[in-house]
Design a protein around this nucleic acid. Structure first.
Lengths: 249, 249
DNA sequence: CGTAACCTTGATTAAGATCAATTCTCGTGG
DNA sequence: CCACGAGAATTGATCTTAATCAAGGTTACG
């Protein structure tokens, strides 16, 4: 496997954005690069924990599976996200004694998904020397907690139409935000389009919304029949953003 | 309001257990004591954030509410737990500019629920001086993330019978663990009983399991009909722990 | 152009929510 | 001590949402 990541990749990771070159070098020295094809497993639930992951390219689903084989996607991880940090902090001793395990399954959902893995044990001693980094982690974990809270809220208090509406609105606002960022840095104006491009398969979307493919398909249709959206494959055109927002509230 | 908490109370909070007397004194100086009756609100979702809470006595439900008024309890907080820390770390700037908000509702579910509130702004500057405490927070938040993960797993992948079975088993194992602790410290042997005492109302239990009172009642009945448990008010006798565990897996 | 993966649609079923009526429990005051 | 009433819990009948089962259609890609 060609080693094709360096300090410049690390700088893009929010977690490490404030570190100096020498500190980044240390992180680099305790990490290794990995590449996955679509469908390949990064780790399984309850498998021994060895380190946490940072995404460089592609995307990864974090999911749980029921005994009957039903799958639920808890998170989708995209470039510059980190995941699998929970065991690092949850029980310090367990990590040192190789008793820690991953709490979830992780699978690449795109080809050429590139990650690097930071080894847990050396990282723990590193953490003590650079306490500022733990504040970064606190921020990361807090944001994740908030995400999970919202996810639970959706699952328990909203029906699938609302969940789907919320997903579309969130995706729409994320891409708008991304576009603004690009406009700012590149000093160009991008054409604003009232549509989104699904970044995951409909199967995975269903699993993330806590339902199944068939029900998702019907729900898309309902929103189409109400003239709120128009679906063309992975492209969702938003026809009536007000109504869509009223559902997603 | 009588001020009836001191450094000894603080010591019992996991978060502060490693701090010196003088450090605890500082925490004390930026905290204040509050007492609530059953049903009183500590804070509402989206209300301005001022500080995080530590429980001394009683218990508190953290819950979300849908527009239709349906409630879902995400956590029950008991003595020596802390909650409402997420906004502290989620966005540092927002806290300093008084823009942060609580992410959830909190209500006392017992009379004489006692808490103390640590003011966010002074705590943030304190945190920078004592970085070890952020490791404690990382551990707390990681554990909470794992809890939420399991909660989501239950909500999406298990039916209500399984969720209830899991709740009973968890409560049973928690009390067993508590008993062992007491036996160790007090050097006595407690009679082991194969039963648990529900610490919350059945309404709240239903809401925590993602269902309603009626369905919970019927589910209790199903488990009774299968001779797995026996329900007498708040007391649940476990008749067949093997079967119960097989459901909760 | 063929085949596999992906998606849609229809018919049926099942789990759990809702609505409605009682019953149980327990604290309060007569 | 009993009666009352309020809140808590149970039970039954019905309805709704979404899962399951089954079949067919689309798309992408070698």
């Amino acid at each position: 496997m060609k080693k094709k990541f360096d300090i410049n990749d690390l700088k893009k990771i929010h977690l490490f954005s404030d570190l100096s070159e020498s500190e980044l070098g240390k992180i680099l020295s305790i990490s290794h690069y990995k590449k996955f094809s679509r469908g390949e497993i990064l780790f399984f639930d309850t498998e021994p924990f060895h380190g946490f992951y940072c995404v460089l390219e592609g995307s990864i689903k974090l999911y749980k599976i029921s005994t009957e084989g039903r799958e639920h996607i808890v998170h989708i991880m995209n470039p510059y996200n980190t995941f699998g940090e929970v065991p690092v902090f949850e029980n310090y001793e367990d990590v040192l004694n190789d008793k820690a395990v991953y709490p979830i399954n992780a699978m690449a959902i795109e080809d050429d998904t590139e990650v690097f893995v930071v080894s847990a044990k050396p990282f723990l001693s590193y953490l003590k020397q650079y306490p500022e980094i733990s504040l970064k982690f606190l921020s990361t974990l807090s944001k994740r907690l908030k995400l999970l809270n919202n996810h639970i809220e959706g699952l328990t208090l909203h029906d699938i139409k609302r969940r789907l509406a919320k997903y579309i609105i969130d995706e729409y606002e994320n891409t708008s935000r991304e576009m603004k960022k690009i406009e700012k840095t590149k000093k160009i104006i991008l054409k604003k389009s009232d549509s989104i491009e699904l970044s995951i398969s409909k199967y995975d979307l269903a699993s993330h919304l806590g339902t199944i493919l068939e029900t998702l398909s019907r729900t898309f249709k309902k929103l189409q029949d109400e003239k709120i959206i128009e679906v063309h494959g992975k492209k969702i055109a938003i026809l009536d953003i007000k109504k869509l927002k009223s559902y997603s509230a």
